[in-house]
Structures are given as C-alpha cells and as structure tokens.
Nucleic acid binder design. Structure first.
Lengths: 199, 199
DNA sequence: CCCCAAACTTGATGTAGGATAAGAAATTAA
DNA sequence: TTAATTTCTTATCCTACATCAAGTTTGGGG
C-alpha cells in the first residue's frame, strides 16, 4: 500500500511513533476510482475524508440554473471531503468526481473520531490543516470580491501549478468563476497582451 | 468581568471543570475599544484572538483601488482574528475596526498554545469552531460564484439577523460585494417587488 | 441643539462578463 | 480508424453591476 505520502504529509505537522503510524494506517481503506466516477453526490451524507495518493478529484456544486462551480481540486497529496456533510452527518450539496483514474485512502468519520481518542496528536493535525484550509478560502473569497477574472486565473495557477495544463479548461473556468466562453476570450487577450509586452 | 458568555459558548462544545474554567479565564485580557478604533491594521502581525462580549467589530481588506471588502462581522458572542497572520505570525492583510463601542476578551497566541498544552480539550474546541468557520466560508464562496447580489443579501440577513438594521448600509454592501449605489437601487427594487407580491 | 461629515439616493452612462448559437478541434470509445 | 461525444473557440448581442456626478438625508461630536 502506498502510504508513504500520507505519513510524510502528516509528520510535517506532528510527531508520531512507529506504532502510532501503523495504527493510523490500519484505519485507512484504499480505494480506486475511474475517470468520471462519482466519489460523492449531492444529497448524500459524506462518511469519509479522502486522501488522494494518485490522480485528481474535483469538488463542485450545481446551482439552480444547472451551472457547475468548482470549490476545490484535490491532486495527489491533498485531502477532500464535503466538510459540511461530514461534520453534521446531514445530506450535503457537494459532488466529488474523479477527473482521471484516481487512488484514494478513505478515513471514515467514526474512525477519525476514534483516532482523536487514541492519538490526541491527530486532533492537532486536523486542526492545523483545517486552519490552513480556512485561510485559503478566506483569501479566495476576498479575491472573488476584489480581483478580475484574469487575476483570479493567476492565483489558480499559483495554487495548482500541476493542473494548469492537465485540466480541461472548462474546469478551470468553473473554478475561477467565469463561463468557458469568456475564459477562452480571456486567454486570447492574455496572449496578445503578452506579445505587446515582448516588443 | 463578563465572562459568562464566553464560558457558555465554549461549554456548548466541550466539558470543563470549574478549575479549568477559571484557568482559562485567567488567560484572558479584557479590553475596551471605542467606535472607529482599529483593533488591527493591515501590515501588522496579529497576536490575539478576539472574543466580543459587547458591541461589534468588522474585518475587512482594502484592494489596490482603495475599495473595502468585508470578510466578516463579529457581533456579541463571536470570535474574530486575522487567521492568516495569527497562524504564520507574518504581517497580515486584514483590518479589524470597531463599528460601535465594543468590549472584547483577548487571548494571545502564546497563551492559546499554552492552553492547548494545559487543557487538551481546547484543541478540540478550536478545531470545531475552525471547522464551522471553514464550512461557512466555503458556502459563502459558492454563493458568490452562483447567486445574485439580492440572494447574497438574503444570506447576509440569515447569518447576521441582529445587524440588518443596526449596520450602515455601505457595510452590508461591502459584505455582499456590491457598491453602495447598487445596493441602494437593489433595495428599492426589492420594495416594489414585495408590493407586487402583496397584490 | 446645531452643524458638518458621513451615509444614502438617484440619474446617466460605461463595462466585465453572460447568453446564445454555431462551427472547429480534440478525446474517447468501439 | 472512425463515429460520436465532449471540449474549445469565435462572433453577436445582452445584462448585472460599476462609475461618475450631484443632490439629499442622517446622526454623532462639539
């Protein structure tokens, strides 16, 4: 099982003995999804946190006009879940879909709670990654209130450098909050602007 | 000292003995700000979490055109801080200002860390409120991507019912992400719409 | 109580980005 | 390889909201 990555990403924030590492790993379930598989659909209760060991997932909502809005991407090494549903155990509004064939490690809510009890350090670990996540959503909200679509695109590029060229452009558009048509126009404009600056 | 409110809001999530409560309270510093006082300015390092026991604060950023964007309000019973700066201890981008004469309890970062050590339950408490805060910023981001200004105004009303009539309208406009001019027009439209529905 | 700054409103005009449509290019499944 | 589907682009027109300007109302400090 490829658990190096998850252990490494955890021990960047807390120290664990070998037994603790093994105990933690024993709580995980590996699972494989194929491109376009849905890991979670809106209306369902989210029962797991998902850690991506290979591939890429996307979390998105569908508004009442049928348009999709991407909340987050989860490439290799990232966690994803419908936090609202996971916390409340009520039906959520998030869809999570595999953008390519993807391997994940599942940590169920009940096992996560058990983990907090068995190894209190994990309370700290999840507090820290939740804090970091909170900060980045605050920043993204401010960006959406104050930046143009083009500036938000640059922020996307900084946040997900590995995805710039691998992701369908319509997914990027749905993340920065514009239509695919406008995104296309915007890119053309950016090219001509770039050329002007070269002269 | 008016610490009933903060103890009550904490014991909604974790259980504390009387000694633990007293220890916690001993770590807090009360402070009073006057209307228009700045609790924190962008560029400063945030050294405290602030709990409002009376009055109201606002957290906002100023963009490169000089426009203000409200990240959050903190009426009585709410916490506020520049999370980014508090976590990293680097200069932040948030301003926190008193909208009226306001009483707060300060919890310094170093004391908060001491608290995690002395009473590990607090690790859980702050994890939970951070989780809840994360969920609401996620929702607000989705709302900004998918809803009209009018729908976002309704969400503001649900989130901060006590502020609808007490807050200057330009503050509400800066929260939902429109200009005061447009907010004014929007309200007039909502009135005439409401009248039509009555007929 | 009054005055002045701040907040609010209203109108005229401008613009970033959306809606629609339709064809071109790229992927996928078979 | 090809047919079918999805994605991307381009053009035209449209709308939600911004900008600018000017006047009105409000309310908090002296």
């Amino acid at each position: 099982m490829s658990t190096n990555l998850i252990i490494e990403s955890i021990t960047r924030h807390i120290r664990l003995s070998n037994e603790e590492k093994e105990h933690f790993i024993s709580l995980l379930q590996p699972k494989i999804y194929k491109r376009k598989d849905f890991i979670l659909e809106d209306g369902q209760v989210c029962k797991y946190s998902y850690f991506v060991t290979a591939g890429c997932l996307r979390g998105f909502t569908v508004d009442h006009n049928g348009f999709e809005h991407v909340l987050n991407f989860a490439p290799t090494g990232w966690w994803i879940a419908d936090m609202y549903s996971l916390l409340t155990q009520k039906p959520g509004i998030l869809n999570i879909e595999a953008l390519e064939n993807t391997e994940v490690l599942l940590l169920s809510k009940s096992r996560q709670e058990k983990l907090y009890h068995d190894i209190p350090q994990f309370e700290r670990f999840f507090r820290i990654i939740t804090e970091n996540s909170l900060v980045s959503y605050q920043q993204r909200l401010i960006d959406n209130l104050s930046l143009t679509a083009e500036e938000r695109y640059h922020n996307f590029c900084r946040r997900y450098p590995s995805l710039i060229n691998t992701l369908p452009k319509k997914q990027i558009a749905a993340y920065i909050g514009v239509t695919p048509e406008f995104f296309s126009r915007m890119q053309r404009q950016m090219l001509t602007k770039g050329k002007k600056q070269q002269d």
